[in-house]
Design a protein around this nucleic acid. Structure first.
Ligand SMILES: [Mn+2]
Ligand SMILES: [Mn+2]
Ligand SMILES: [Zn+2]
Ligand SMILES: [Zn+2]
Lengths: 143, 143
DNA sequence: TCCTAGATCAGATTTATTCCGATTTAGGTA
DNA sequence: TACCTAAATCGGAATAAATCTGATCTAGGA
């Protein structure tokens, strides 16, 4: 999924393609990692200084609804966003000290299948699976 | 783990046992589910009307540090707390509409074992695994 | 080129959590 | 049992994240 595909998809959905939305997408697509709302704002403001937090949040929530973006609520209350490379579903190993994370290959599909089967009346829309701890750099300096 | 065991453990750790702390524990131990900070405050105030949010949050953070309480950060940013029945590790099926949840029996231990093995330099302290969607009552009325 | 629904901006508002200074108290000591 | 003090609590102020509001602007269709 690149920028042009995504913009095409937005148009197909009848969603207006504004410079702000386009720039937010470019940020999210630029480096494959997650961002805080503030990081996104700062990066977008490098090109469009007048962009407001409101626009960032509205856009992220829109993209979330359209399935373009995933919102991650990490332990400690950190909220992060990343582009939803639909074909690259994954989870995270998150350092509680420095906040850096790495992608994980494993997804608990067997658990999920069992849960789905045992709860047919529940409409599952997603799941989270994150592993927390302290990375090599941080494990020594934990308070 | 009952109230007396827990109070004993607090004393052993050199932590003061105040009526407020005791009441918060009673709330958490009363019904095996999770609570918002505000729910806890309201319940504690039923007996001690002067208790403040500050005390609730400080106590929850203390208990969290001591491993007595688990903080859950659900999708959407909802933060909840539950007593850490250490022998009853579990995960949740959470309704995004009404917020109710049910415990799940499955825990992705095989994933976890693999991740631990593949990342020996990372000190894992915990993990989250939550399944989101819409419960029977809510699946019809999703906006 | 014009029109308008929808998007943006700037700042106010709301809500969750933490901080702060004054006061109280749990639990140790004599 | 009567102090003593470090730690805990209270009440309200401060902070921070996210949303709302109303005025203005604009993307994209006619
Ligand atoms: Mn990721
Ligand atoms: Mn639970
Ligand atoms: Zn780290
Ligand atoms: Zn529900």
């Amino acid at each position: 999924m690149n920028l042009n595909d995504t913009l095409f998809r937005l148009k197909a959905l009848g969603v207006k393609v504004t410079p702000q939305r386009q720039e937010i997408l470019e940020v999210l697509l630029g480096e494959e990692r997650y961002y805080s709302a503030e990081e996104i704002l700062k990066k977008v403001q490098a090109r469009y200084p007048a962009v407001s937090f409101d626009t960032v949040y509205r856009t992220l929530n829109l993209f979330k609804k359209l399935g373009l973006v995933v919102e991650l609520n990490f332990q400690g209350g950190y909220r992060r966003y990343e582009f939803n490379h639909a074909d690259r579903h994954h989870h995270h190993l998150v350092c509680l000290k420095c906040g850096r994370s790495q992608k994980l290959a494993c997804c608990p599909t067997d658990c999920l299948a069992g849960i789905e089967e045992e709860n047919p009346e529940f409409a599952i829309t997603g799941h989270s699976f994150e592993i927390y701890g302290y990375c090599k750099d941080c494990r020594g300096q934990v308070k």
